[in-house]
Design a protein around this nucleic acid. Structure first.
Lengths: 404, 404
DNA sequence: ATATGTTTGTTTTGCAACCAAACAAAATAG
DNA sequence: CTATTTTGTTTGGTTGCAAAACAAACATAT
């Protein structure tokens, strides 16, 4: 691509990104944000409008910031310009989300399997049905750009699954099967669910300026994703941010991965239940454990107290190495953190130097659509970053795979 | 800066960077590497030559790669275009290095203090003398661009020292003192010594393409630096990569920082000596300990064996989170790793998933000029990256010049 | 010696994107 | 109604890069 054209594409991408984060802007606003002249901004907007990506919208002039001067013409992303599908394969259910060009969730369907741990063929077939039904409701079938699928496992570079313990899948050529079942619909990639969750979070409008953060998805395992300097940390082979596998000690309450002392052997759901069992009590699910905890069960409180210490030490390692502004914690196990109140932050502080500011600890809602939304959001982001601010993302942005 | 000018500056920086890593190139070589036409490359080279940054050099046509066609005119960086000074303040000695524009070490002086732990005033005065003497030997005084100083401690954003335990300094306004003592010579910044060491390593020509690596400097403490996706990992407040402080356990052999279980409490020089002392033996220095080890002392071997396990676990945490291609280990304590032979790598592997490739472990020489060279190299790199390959700079690079 | 082929480096022409400045339009304040 | 402010558009100018043609330098074959 010739030089000037590359610059133009980049500025168009920056304009789209600005519109995505602010929602509504005038041409003059765009000029200010991108530090271009109004004339250039106008030219860029004209291109985007002619392609249908952006549209003028009848202004709501009632509550303007600016009281004087000619009011700007409001611009926004054309929501119907494109749609992105994202799915999340769980052991018990299958979820499908549809995002529009503005990043809004337009549809969401969940299918609960008759019996858990379905085969990949069953998943492929069922997902194809769900996709067809979801697309039928959209205003423009041709605007659907494709499907990404989040998986609780490790995905290799070819898109085959290397390992998905919660599903009992090993070396399943899932993408190939999916592509066959989907017909015309392009299946872009399989993504680790923790990664997908992270993408959903980091594209939140309020986090758009966050340059350094850590995202944790805690359920049967602990998966994660690291945002560093505005980019996802991938590592040489795309296997970075295996947060659940980092050896924070030498033992642990269980042994999920074969790595003694791995973080998830201390703080994941199975670890919590195993620890509780070691104290002579039984809980069949995290929900049951939390109920016991809330009723003041002493053993459960002991488990929470130890969990807080171990979790804080893991967070301290992350903070010491990465100095993130924020750590976002999702998954069912986030409920544990919610019950530690100030203790967790206190324990974290105890492990840090005075000079190190502790990150903001944020617990997300547990509605659980994170990974599916994230899978779709990955496609969305890919379009926006196509020629975008260099360094913020090649199409290969999310090659990493981490088990959760 | 107008758009085309910004692009030009960037291409000039890319050309300089290419020349730095390859040493000698023709205009056609530059055109190929930068993916520009020969005419554009010629134009860029002409600018650089007129500024004196690059020079043509009488070709040595005896052993050309290319046997046919017109031979190119060899180009190289003009070594005397600029000089960069770098110093390293230690408890026992003070070191000064001079790098030229081509990155070659042109001079090196070490001063040993009469008594250890000098005051900041003493260091400032002595360093000023050394700088004056070193500059006198250079071909062009005006080409000296400034001085950076590496410090074994934490530096805040204003450039004052927050803490330097090995020197017994606390909240010393060192940069201000230095600037006063240096007169005309600009003192650009104070840098943590481990960071400086890392910069010296990552600018090595053979590592120029490495995108993900970890650098460890192990002496009285453990400092580090993380290269991720080709950029130094800084974190929100610039305090990332405090590798020595990450809590890998709950105890440790000593307590250097007040953080129980910090990595350096297990594997730094004081930790090794403390552990040895706990086994009822004495060693006054690491050298003495290594001598005992080499003579087959059983307690020393026990210490090494435990050290290997602890160190491996720390490396496993780094590998799990960052997936680096290489971990470079410097400082005197690197000698310990040298004596573990295969055990260290084996222990590291035990902590990793099968899928995770262990990084190359590299032990650098222990001549100890790393931090001083790195401090100077930081200045060198600053010039080269001034408008450099986008991503190392700011994204608002391509707009109008609002600075005027 | 001469011709041929290959690669380098330069020159010329054209283009795309941006900026600066001037201008027209749409609102508010007095 | 006029002055002021801000928006959006238009025009002219600048800049760096690409494409293509050309000149130069060397190796090799005849």
């Amino acid at each position: 691509m010739s030089m000037p054209v590359a610059v133009r594409k980049m500025n168009e991408a920056r304009a789209l990104e600005a519109l995505f984060s602010k929602g509504i802007m005038s041409r003059a606003d765009i000029a200010r944000v991108l530090e271009l002249t109004r004339s250039t901004a106008s030219s860029i907007v004209a291109s985007l409008i002619s392609e249908g990506q952006v549209q003028e919208v009848s202004a709501d002039n009632s509550d303007r910031e600016q009281k004087t001067g000619r009011p700007g013409i409001s611009l926004r992303l054309n929501p119907d310009y494109a749609f992105y599908l994202g799915a999340d394969v769980g052991a018990k259910d299958l979820r499908l989300c549809v995002l529009d060009f503005a990043g809004t969730l337009r549809a969401e369907v969940t299918h609960r399997f008759d019996k858990p741990n379905p085969s990949s063929e069953v998943v492929s077939a069922r997902l194809a049905e769900m996709v067809e039904k979801a697309c039928a409701d959209l205003p423009d079938q041709a605007a659907v750009k494709g499907l990404n699928v989040a998986i609780p496992g490790i995905v290799d570079l070819t898109g085959d699954i290397l390992r998905a313990p919660p599903l009992n899948w090993r070396k399943v050529p899932f993408r190939e099967q999916l592509a066959k079942a989907m017909g015309e619909m392009p299946v872009h990639k399989l993504i680790n669910d923790a990664n997908a969750f992270a993408v959903a979070q980091l594209r939140r409008p309020d986090l758009i300026d966050t340059q350094d953060a850590v995202f944790l998805l805690m359920d049967d395992g602990v998966g994660g994703c690291i945002l560093s300097g505005g980019r996802l940390l991938e590592g040489t082979t795309g296997l970075a941010a295996e947060i659940g596998h980092m050896p924070i000690g030498t033992k642990g309450h269980c042994n999920l991965t074969g790595i003694h002392g791995a973080f998830e052997n201390y703080v994941s759901r199975p670890a919590i239940l195993a620890h509780y069992a070691n104290l002579g009590r039984q809980a069949t699910s995290l929900t049951a454990f939390l109920a016991a905890l809330d009723q003041g069960d002493a053993a459960a409180q002991k488990v929470l107290s130890v969990w807080t210490q171990d979790f804080a030490r893991g967070l301290a390692i992350l903070t010491t190495l990465l100095n993130p502004a924020r750590i976002v914690i999702g998954g069912r196990v986030a409920e544990m953190a919610r019950r530690t109140e100030g203790d967790l932050l206190g324990a974290l502080r105890d492990h840090l130097l005075e000079e190190t500011p502790p990150p903001v600890l944020e617990l997300t809602g547990t509605s659980g659509e994170g990974p599916a939304v994230g899978a779709a959001m990955t496609l969305h982001h890919q379009h926006f970053a196509q020629f975008g601010p260099l360094g913020s993302g090649r199409p290969e942005l999310l090659g990493a795979d981490h088990s959760a």
